[in-house]
Amino acid sequence: MSQDKPKDQQGMFGAAGTGDTSGYGGLVRATAAAGSSQRPFGGYFDQVADDLERAYPDFADAIERVVVDRGELTLHIKRERLVEVALILRDKLKFEMSMGVSGVHYPDDKNRELHAVYHLLSVTNNQRIRLEVSVPDIDPHIPSLVEVWGGSNWNERETFDMFGIIFDGHPGLTRILMPDDWQGHPQRKDYALGGIGVEYKGAVTPPPSDRRSYK
């Protein structure tokens, strides 16, 4: 799935190349994805965007797009500008706390395969926003935010461990959940879940990743 160009889904079942005799193979279902949002964003989001534009003159250059979806604001930021924007959000807009970094892997999103998503909380203003940075798989570097929010340390290590995103400037970017000598990054979509089939009275239940799945 790509966030910019949503891919329509074909058929009902996940297993490709098998004899799908259900007759549902020809169904095409359009997937709607949130594009850029236009002002007014609603709620406090306009205020946040205004304040950020005022405090940060390069706003238009640094922010790729603004998405307001399901009552949440997401700022898509160029990775070169991430630290600058984060500092302004922390110091000028009072987003004192970073609630963590979450990675998402979109293998079909060409040259933007890996996304790092930051959830920010402003205790002063009781607001939440989300920052999203996307980088290509072949160059998975994002500047570290440990200097801005110290708590990003473990979160970035986890995202590195699970997705292979390299946070430049991190004081000690090592694996945190997986063993140090582990191969691969488990949360990526090209990393198999693994598992073995379970046999009972001659019938085998395949592992979860090989079962027929519904799209």
């Binding site: 994805a33 949440e72 998402v104 998503v117 959830h119 519904y214 799209k215």
Partner: peptide, 27 residues
Amino acid sequence: PAGQVYSAIESPRGELGAHVVSDGGTR
């Protein structure tokens, strides 16, 4: 429906947040 949300609640230990991403499918 496709999209992403972050829902946070106050667990006994603090903010428990779920960042949930959907591609429009059943999983």
